[in-house]
């Protein structure tokens, strides 16, 4: 189990709402989507990949097979799902410091919601209602969302630059090249492994690597086992 893969953290939180106040939440979500300004704080927090809030009615939970026992639910639920870069604390704290009003608006009608300030009751509320991630795949473990956005910018800028400079003079080329660099000056950060998220996460990862490297696979001899390709791309680990 890990909520962490590479530089990303997956958070699932599911909290109950009284069925007769569900419409209030739906209305607030509708407003938030209609008036983009309400989400400005969330968008400015660049560590967040995305955040999604969904209302699940008490009869809407999956019932996959007639043999699956029917659940008797008393509440509607709000599911919050987000991926972000950094640690749990960093994320929840950024939320609380930056957009406490927005959080309160979205969670206000949830049962026993504490308000986002002061911090500790809010931490407890999220922790208590968080569902741990059992499986989490990350295709680009070295990339934070800013890195992905930058990479896309760099790529499109380079393609455009190549097209624009096919027939220009040397002086003009330099001018356009300087402009290219200037335009990309906030997109040129190095991309190396993440700073470790916590000592416990670090130790889990080290144990996993130890097992991967030391335990033979599928009955191969003591030295014959091949270590699975490292999921977290630490081949570029620095400073060792």
């Amino acid at each position: 189990m890990s909520n962490i893969a590479g530089k990303a953290y997956a958070m699932n939180v599911i909290t109950p709402i009284r069925p007769y106040t569900t419409w209030v939440n739906k209305f607030i979500f509708w407003i938030a989507v209609k008036i983009p300004g309400t989400l400005k704080g969330l968008i400015t927090l660049s560590l967040i990949h995305y955040a999604r809030w969904v209302i699940i009615g008490k009869d809407q939970f999956p019932h996959l097979d007639p043999k699956q026992p029917k659940e008797e639910l008393n509440y509607t639920y709000m599911m919050f799902f987000s991926n972000f870069n950094g640690s749990w604390d960093q994320y929840v704290d950024s939320f609380t410091f930056a957009i406490p009003g927005g959080l309160d608006l979205f969670w206000k009608w949830n049962i026993r919601y504490s308000k986002s300030v002061p911090l500790t009751p809010f931490h407890d509320y999220i922790r208590y209602n968080q569902i741990e991630t059992i499986h989490y795949y990350n295709a680009y473990p070295l990339a934070a969302s800013n890195d992905v956005k930058s990479a896309k910018t760099v790529k499109s800028s380079l393609i455009k630059f190549e097209q624009d400079t096919r027939n220009v003079s040397g002086d003009n080329f330099l001018k356009l090249y300087n402009a290219l660099l200037r335009g990309l000056q906030h997109d040129m950060g190095d991309m190396y492994p993440t700073p470790i998220v916590s000592m416990s996460a670090h130790q889990v990862e080290r144990r996993q690597k130890w097992h991967a490297a030391n335990l033979p696979e599928g009955g191969a001899g003591p030295t014959g086992g091949t270590a699975p390709k490292e999921a977290h791309g630490h081949s570029a680990k620095k400073g060792k």
Partner: peptide, 19 residues
């Protein structure tokens, strides 16, 4: 906005120094 530039994301946060 001009490439390579940033501006204040005005009133995005509860208080300017939130982070």
């Amino acid at each position: 906005d001009k490439p390579g530039s940033f501006k204040v994301s005005k009133d995005a946060f509860d208080t300017p120094g939130a982070l």
